[in-house]
Amino acid sequence: MSEKEIKNLEEIFEARIARDEKIEPKDWMPEKYRKTHIRQISQHAHSEIVGMLPEGNWITRAPSLRRKAALLAKVQDEAGHGLYLYSACETLGISREEMYEQLHTGKAKYSSIFNYPTLTWADMGAIGWLVDGAAIINQVPLCNTSYGPYARAMIRVCKEESFHQRQGFESLLTLCKGTPDQKNMAQDALNRWWWPSLMMFGPTDDESTHTEQSMKWKLKRKTNDELRQQFVDQTVPQAEILGITIPDPDLKWNEERGHYDFGKINWDEFWQVVKGHGPCNKQRIKDRVSAWEKGAWVRDAAIAYAEKQEKRNQEERKAS
């Protein structure tokens, strides 16, 4: 194709998205659209998969059967969300093995929040309440994104995510109504998860490089700072119901803006964790790679079994 023809196709393509039309796998798309979507969808899938690790840590130690069933179901949902997203991403022409390879070698990123440790049971509540709460705010606009398979996967994800946040809040509320030690445990979890949760919305708008293009393609509807503000505004009253204190002395209602003002985020910490130097980056990838390698014989055996069955079926068909 000549440069002029490509430019023409790109204009038609952008116009389709502007008209709210969806792009489907076999449609023509600019290389940059394909690459950006592969990057974002695969990172999203990886986040779901790595996100199981900090919680899996607590399944066997859940304090009651009710909590254990909820946590198991949540972790199973995350596996499912990873699978929806991996198959959506595969429609863009990257293989699942390639994506795993990128995750396992550290070439692909995943949400930095999962590089923090889960030290106490209260962390399960705090993750549900804050991390899933922030994820929902990030994800809801994606139900309307321009790439059809991604949008469809996100509709399923968002439907299921609401239970994640509610079970977390209920669990924390139970601790907050319990003994002073239990309440302290909830406060400690909030102290450790608050700032990393705010970082989940990404760098500030003036530092964010992809915003303009992402808005055009409906990968984003609001900027990082707008979403972060929305999260703070909705979470402060929830902390009041719990009766625990958000660890930010600068947090206060701004009548004029109609929003809460909040303190400065430690962006050095954010970039440290993104670059692989968070408390658990190495542990998470090590666990993930180990699970993958230890499962290799199962995958091979399943293929060998399927081939044997297929051969047997063929012979039976021939004989009859």
Partner: peptide
């Protein structure tokens, strides 16, 4: 509903049950 990876048809059915019909 979507797609998934499985070694054979039987496993695809079982995985589909877990991935797409949990609720």
């Amino acid at each position: 509903f979507g797609s998934l990876r499985a070694a054979d048809a039987e496993m695809a059915l079982e995985n589909a049950r877990d991935v797409y019909t949990r609720r």
